[in-house]
């Protein structure tokens, strides 16, 4: 299950034209941009929120917000600009949940549901249903560990490691300097490593071997 590494780049000619039209209020042109980016935006939201419904809400909210704020887009990476909007939407929702712990029970139930998406993809990808189930279990463990990270660390881990964005683009997406990305990512990786070691039996051999060498 490999991702093709996304490259940091300026919007293409076609995208630039669509952005220009959308800025004038052309909703159809904006919807072309939605079609081009919705899978990526949704995946980021899903990995940050850890469950489907909240990810869908954040994605929809992000696109509505993007359409309204489009005039403030001044060139550069449109994808990074979108990422900033969706990560902000997720961050706001996570903070809202933290303020109202009454919803924490719901959140726990929803974390249990999160593997549904992974299970579906894995089952399609693998011929062997047993291997697919194991893969889904692993994905659930990784997501579970991510859900225990503080939002600011989780967002950086999702953008840099899950999505494969470079530091510059992550910095643009979170609106912080590259140095902040560097330190947050290092700490996020260290914490995830600690958490994942508790799911030792699920982890691939390569990952377990490393941990066993630690006294």
């Amino acid at each position: 299950m490999c991702h093709t590494a996304p490259r940091y780049d300026e919007p293409g000619m076609e995208e630039t034209a669509l952005i220009r039209q959308a800025k004038k209020g052309d909703l159809e042109a904006f919807n072309q941009l939605v079609l081009a980016h919705q899978a990526r935006v949704y995946n980021v939201a899903y990995r940050i929120m850890g469950e489907r419904d909240a990810a869908e809400d954040a994605t929809q909210e992000a696109f509505i917000s993007a359409y309204r704020k489009l005039r403030s887009f001044r060139g550069g990476s449109f994808r990074a600009w979108l990422m900033r909007i969706v990560t902000n939407a997720c961050y706001d929702e996570l903070r809202r949940r933290k303020r109202r712990p009454a919803g924490s029970l719901d959140a726990l139930v929803q974390v249990g549901e999160d593997s549904a998406g992974d299970l579906q993809v894995m089952a399609e990808a693998a011929q062997d249903p047993e291997a697919a189930a194991e893969q889904a279990e692993l994905a659930r463990a990784i997501q579970d560990c991510m859900n225990h990270l503080a939002p600011e660390f989780r967002i950086v881990a999702v953008l840099a490691d899950v999505q494969g964005y470079d530091y510059k683009e992550v910095a643009q997406a979170i609106g912080k300097p590259v140095g902040t990305v560097k330190s947050r990512l290092a700490r996020a990786r260290a914490r995830l490593r600690e958490c994942l070691q508790r799911h030792g039996e699920l982890l691939p051999a390569a990952f377990r071997l490393e941990s066993e060498t630690i006294p």
Partner: peptide
């Protein structure tokens, strides 16, 4: 390991 997480399809 993080990179191995599958892409999910929006519903």
């Amino acid at each position: 390991l993080l990179r191995s997480l599958p892409e999910v399809r929006p519903a």
